[in-house]
Amino acid sequence: MNTADFLYEVGALKRTARTGWALARLPNRESVADHSFRTAVIAMTLAAMSGADPDRAATLALLHDLPEARLGDMHHLTRRYLDEPKPFRRVIDDQTENLPPPVREAIRSRAAQWLDQETAEARLARDADTLDSLLHVRESLADRPDLRERWEEYLSAAVTTEAGRTMMAEIRATDPDAWWPRTVST
């Protein structure tokens, strides 16, 4: 595998649907790449809010689902039955094996940081992962308030950082459509 092969593999995430939403019967499905993009922006925002490194947090969030190019998206119910995080480390090692050493080590070290959850940036990126799902639920289930509330409670319990809890409260208090009318100039 060369660098171009790796980039083509990363592109597979644009075609990899997130499976948890189908299981939950959400009509608004997204790809893993869709999810990773907004998760990276959320992680950058949370890190800036809390004095952590926004670039590192965004990078961790951007790369967090890279193994899903080979494993497919595995929702939380599936992950209960796996020996996590061992398979993810093996996939990252395999994916990056033939990359130039500086690229290989940059990706592997960030993947390890994500999996180990020992830094502020990793914990903020994990919260960003959850907050993106919270945003998606609120966008997708506006017409099903009981189900939306159950999902919100479930996801909210996974947010662990102060910045993440602050953002979670703001998300829950904000209508998903409130942003756009204010942006249109008259």
Rank of each mutant, 00 (worst) to 15 (best):
S31T: 14
E9A: 12
D34G: 04
S31Q: 04
R29E: 10
S31K: 04
I42L: 13
G11D: 14
R38M: 14
H35D: 07
N2K: 10
R18L: 06
I42P: 06
A24L: 09
T16C: 09
V41A: 06
D5N: 14
R25L: 06
R29T: 13
F6I: 15
N28K: 05
A17P: 06
A40Q: 00
A40N: 01
T3C: 08
G11H: 09
E9D: 14
V10Q: 11
N2Q: 07
T3Q: 10
R38V: 12
P27G: 14
W21D: 13
A12M: 07
I42K: 01
A17L: 07
G11L: 13
I42N: 03
W21P: 02
R38I: 12
L23E: 15
A22I: 05
R25N: 12
L7G: 08
A40Y: 01
F6W: 15
A12E: 15
H35V: 11
N28F: 11
E9G: 12
S36L: 13
W21M: 05
A22M: 01
V32E: 08
K14N: 10
Y8D: 12
V32S: 05
A22V: 09
T39D: 07
S36K: 00
E9H: 09
S36Q: 11
R38G: 00
F37I: 11
A22C: 03
A12Q: 14
F6K: 13
G11Y: 10
T19V: 03
L26M: 13
A40P: 05
E30R: 13
E9M: 11
A4K: 13
A17N: 01
F37W: 11
W21T: 02
L26I: 12
R38D: 06
D5C: 09
F37N: 04
D5M: 13
E9C: 14
L26S: 05
A22R: 13
K14T: 14
R25M: 01
A4H: 13
H35R: 03
V32A: 10
F37D: 03
E30P: 01
D34R: 03
R38H: 08
A17I: 08
F37R: 05
I42C: 02
R18E: 08
R15F: 01
A40E: 03
N2Y: 03
L13P: 09
V41T: 05
T3E: 11
D34P: 10
R29W: 03
S36H: 00
H35A: 04
A24E: 06
L23I: 04
A17G: 07
T39S: 13
R38E: 11
P27V: 04
V10M: 14
R25A: 08
F6G: 12
R29Y: 00
Y8W: 07
R18N: 06
L23V: 13
W21I: 02
A12P: 08
F37P: 00
V10L: 15
A17R: 08
T16W: 00
S36R: 05
G11C: 13
A4N: 12
T39P: 03
F37T: 09
L13E: 12
A17D: 05
A40D: 04
